[in-house]
Structures are given as C-alpha cells and as structure tokens.
Design a protein around this nucleic acid. Structure first.
Length: 493
RNA sequence: GCGGGCGUAACUCAGUUGGCAGAGUGUCAGCUUCCCAAGCUGAAUGUCGCGGGUUCGAGCCCCGUCGCCCGCUCCA
C-alpha cells in the first residue's frame, strides 16, 4: 500500500510539474511509453550531459553516435536473434509460465524418460520423426537431449502432452509453445518482405563494437581506450512496469573500454568503482546505492564478470547500470560474421590480438527516475508541508528564478534586466505572479536551486537576495556578480 | 500472458437506492503584499478512460476494450 503511494506520488508530481507525461494520453495512452515535458527534458539532458562530460572529457575515451538501424547480421553475430526468441509455454491450469528451453531442468529424469517412450509410441507409424528423435537422443552434445527434443516443434507438441506441469502437477495442461521475439522488427523500403527486415537496436553497444577500428584509427587511440555513446534502444518486453523503470523504448548511456586481455580485471574494478562514484557525486543518497554482483552461473552468454549498480526505488532495489567484462566475445563474433579482422596490433609487444571489452551500461531513463525519486522530499515548515526536489544544481532543470518582490517601484524592470543577462548562460525562470512565499515554494517543487529576489535595497545599492533552495537561507549578492556567483555554485558543488 | 485493485477538472479525491457534475488544491485576472504555499474579489477548465448494452433516465448496473498500480510470469 505504502509502496504504491510512493510511486503514485512521483508519477503525479511528474505530471503536475511537467517532468513526464504519458505517451499519447488523449488517445488513452500507449502501454509503457512516456513523454518528457519541459522540466523533464531539461533534467534528462543534464543527466546525459554530466555523464558525457565525465566519460568523454578525458583522453582515453572517444564518443560516437551510431545509427539505430544496423545491418541485420549484427544481431546474428551478437546473439540477439537466437537469444531474444525464447519459446515460452503456459500451464492452462495454474497459469505458470515456463521457458521451453529450460523446462527439462525442473522435471525429474524418470518422468522425462517415460514421456519420451510414450512420445515414441505415438510416432511409431512415422519413421521420419522417429529417426529425428533417435538422432537427438544419441547426439546430445553438452545439451540435455530432452531439451533438444523440445526444440523440435513437431516432437515437442506431443512430448508436452505427456508431461505434468512442474508447478501444479496437472497432466497435459501446456499451451503450444509461443515465441517471444524481444527485438522490434521493421522493414527498410516499401516492400515488407524478409530480405528487407531490420531491427530497432536492443542495445547501443553493437554500434560501438562495429566501429572499433574506425574510431581507433581516426582518433589515433591506443589500448586501453574507450568509446562512449548515448542513444535510444528498444526491447519488446512482455510486460512494462514501474513507470519509467521497465519500458520498451529507453535510452542508454554506454561506454565500451577496450583493453589487453591480461588487464581486464584491473579495468573492470576501475570502472566499477568509478561508475558508483558518479551517481554519488551528483547527490544520490549513498545508502540507496549498492552493487549486485552476478554469480558465475547466472552470467550472460558473453560475460566473464558482471555487476549491477542498483538504486533502492520505492518498489525495491532496481538496476540502473550494469558493468560487464564482455571479454573478446563481441569483436570475435563480428570477425566471424563480417569476415573482417578486428584485431589490434600492439606496438610494444608486437602482438596482434582481439581486445577484451569492459562495458559500463547505464540507463538514462532509469537514472532519471532514480535522480527524481531520490531528490523528492516533503518537509514540515511552520506547520505546512513543503515539497521540494533537492536536485544537484548541475542536474536541476532550472538553475535560478528571478523574482521582483513586488510589482512596482521599478523592481520588475531591474528583474527583467537581470533575467536578460543570466539567460545568456543559464536556464532561468522569471516569475512575478503571487506572493513571494508562494513563488519560492513553486521553485522548491521544480527543484530550482537558487531564487534571486529584487527588493527595495536593490534600488539603492544594486544588490539582490539569493535564496538557497535546501536551507531556505538568503545572502545578498551584487547584481554584477550574479553570473560569477551562479557559475561558481554550478562548477564547485 | 494470468489474477487482483483502480480510472470523475491540471493534481488529490467525493459523488447516497440509477434522478441537475461536486469539493479542496492548483491555474488565470484584479486588488493587496518588503521575504517563505497570507488575505480579498472575480474567472476559466469535464468526450465521468473509450465503445457498446440495459433503462423513461447511467458517473453509478452489464459486456467488451484501453491505460495505470500490485502480485505471478518475464527481464540474453
């Protein structure tokens, strides 16, 4: 109950203040799609900009911006075509769902053997199918032969009817296997046939891998070095969930760091520490951040070592960034599928090899939600509730508000002058509507760190008050020092 | 994909047995106002998520559908 309220509160605030709107709202919305409003787009842009600066304003990382549509073979090489199409079955009785390729793991051997025998009996008039069954049973490789049988549509249909649901134990309750293709498919050109199929990228990383030598050569980089990219990616998830957390369209901030294989551990540890520090440096509550190291037996097909940086959302801990040792898997696969060498020649050792890759992959949309959630506070001030978004000043959508204390005596004119000057460098907001206290509170709720107020003293000595959002304390600053004052706060906080 | 909850103004929500569409907050205009959602006056804003049905009459009952939240499942 409380959890739900927390998420709802954020969703409601996000809409009311123009951070996030539901996509296509006037048409009833589109499942799991969201639009960023005026304040949201600024916050998102600032998050991406901070990431970009911290990741690429250094001599060993270059940037790219690759096309979302890529050659379809990229996704065969990456493993996504195979791994993104897990056939699934449901139990009609208890509604449990299983991945067909691992169903065998949850059924004991005796029952499996029995089901296979019954299946063979059913096919006894069909020599062709019987041969396929025997063939799979006798040449299982390192697979469970039972799972191999399930992969064959014709055999699996009968085999499934001989099995009991591992969840509820009822016999013959499985639906037919259905494929869930998690990549969005579309077509290049006007003809929608198979030769024109392309995919919306399910991760930005591949755009970096295929450009490895282009970037290395043109930027005259040597190992170790990285390539960074920010961009949208798409996964046709079965379910969307938790506001911006699980969506089908999302934005990634990825950096792939190319290293000598022997140095992989060193750089994995380096980036693991570096990336957690980034979130903390932008004010995220340290106690709400943690690592989740992946155990060896749960690693993805390409990874040697992996950890998630998790944030404690109102709904629980959730991954906002993954750090992986991808080994030489990706580049080797692209060598294989493209026929082009992606080896690096090391001048010192005179060796030619495929580099290892340490990946840092952060979700921009997820980081947005984490920063937004983390910044939200409700405080009691003189018996009233003050809602305030305590964004780090560099992330705040608006940097300062300019407020004439009253709308007379030349205060609006001076305020407009200040606004004009500050606008050259900062996203600022001019507000002369309503009482000053109300205007401060409005800015609190938008997360604006500084409010500049023009009062009677301004008319005498050209100074204004600057009110700090979190402490609500004020200092007097000379008008001609305002740009310096704000610059200093933004750079050094 | 399954189950549960919800959907009424920008936001939070009320809406009685099926009988005129409401409140608070916010927004806007004016007055007032020299520092923290103050006060006064006035104003605008509704396909009651959408589509059907029942009924003399539906925000309310029924069916379908879409969306959000929760749980399961999924999340290489």
């Amino acid at each position: 109950m409380e959890k739900q309220n927390d998420v709802d509160k954020i969703v409601s605030l996000a809409k009311r203040r123009g951070f996030v709107f539901q996509s296509s709202e006037i048409y009833g919305g589109l499942n799991g799609c969201w639009d960023y409003g005026p304040l949201g787009v600024e916050l998102l842009k600032n998050i991406k900009e901070e990431w970009w600066k911290s990741m690429t304003y250094r001599e060993d990382v270059e940037g790219v911006d690759a096309s979302i549509l890529m050659h379809p073979k990229v996704w065969e090489a990456s493993g996504h075509v195979a791994n993104f199409t897990d056939p699934m079955i449901d139990c009609k009785q208890c509604k449990a769902r299983f991945r067909l390729d691992v169903l065998g793991d949850s059924i004991n051997q005796k029952k499996k053997d029995k089901a296979v025998i019954e299946t063979k009996t059913e096919f006894k008039a069909n020599a062709q199918v019987l041969e396929r069954i025997e063939n799979k049973l006798s040449n299982p490789g390192d697979e469970d032969p039972f799972n191999l049988l399930l992969e064959d549509a014709e055999i699996s249909k009968v085999l499934l009817s001989k099995l009991n649901c591992p969840q509820c134990g009822n016999p013959n309750t499985f639906t037919d296997a259905r494929k869930f293709n998690l990549m969005f498919k579309t077509f290049i050109g006007p003809v929608e046939d198979n030769s024109a199929v392309v995919y919306l990228r399910p991760e930005t990383a591949q755009g970096i891998f295929v450009n490895f030598l282009n970037v290395q050569g043109s930027a005259r980089q040597k190992l170790p070095f990285g390539i960074a990219q920010i961009g949208k990616a798409f996964r046709n998830e079965i379910n969307t969930k938790n506001f911006l957390f699980r969506t089908r369209e999302f934005e990634q901030m990825e950096m792939q760091f190319f290293v000598k294989p022997a140095d992989d551990k060193k750089w994995y540890d380096y980036w693991k520490a570096e990336r957690l520090e980034w979130f903390k440096s932008l004010g995220m509550t340290p106690s709400k951040l943690r690592y989740h190291d992946h155990p060896q037996n749960k690693l993805a097909h390409y990874a040697k070592e992996a950890t998630d940086i998790e944030y404690e959302f109102p709904f629980g801990w959730g991954e906002i960034e993954g750090i992986h040792n991808r080994t030489d898997f990706d580049l080797s696969q692209h060598e294989k599928f493209s026929g082009k060498s992606l080896k690096y020649f090391d001048e010192e050792s005179k060796e030619k090899f495929v580099p290892y890759i340490i990946e840092t992959s952060a979700g921009a949309s997820r980081s947005f939600m984490a920063f937004l959630t983390d910044a939200y506070y409700e405080e009691e001030v003189k018996g009233e509730i003050r809602s305030v978004l305590k964004f780090h000043p560099r992330l705040a959508p608006l940097k300062a508000a300019i407020l004439p204390l009253v709308n007379k005596d030349g205060m609006p004119e001076i305020s407009r002058e200040i606004e004009k000057t500050l606008r050259k460098n900062f996203k600022v907001f001019y507000d002369d509507k309503g009482a000053i206290g109300r205007r401060y509170r409005r800015m609190d709720e938008a997360g604006t760190p500084y409010s500049i107020t023009v009062d009677t003293q301004t008319l005498e000595d050209r100074t204004v008050t600057v009110r700090e959002r979190d402490s609500m304390e004020q200092v007097r600053v000379s008008i001609d020092q305002l740009t310096n004052y704000l610059s200093d706060k933004l750079l050094n906080s």
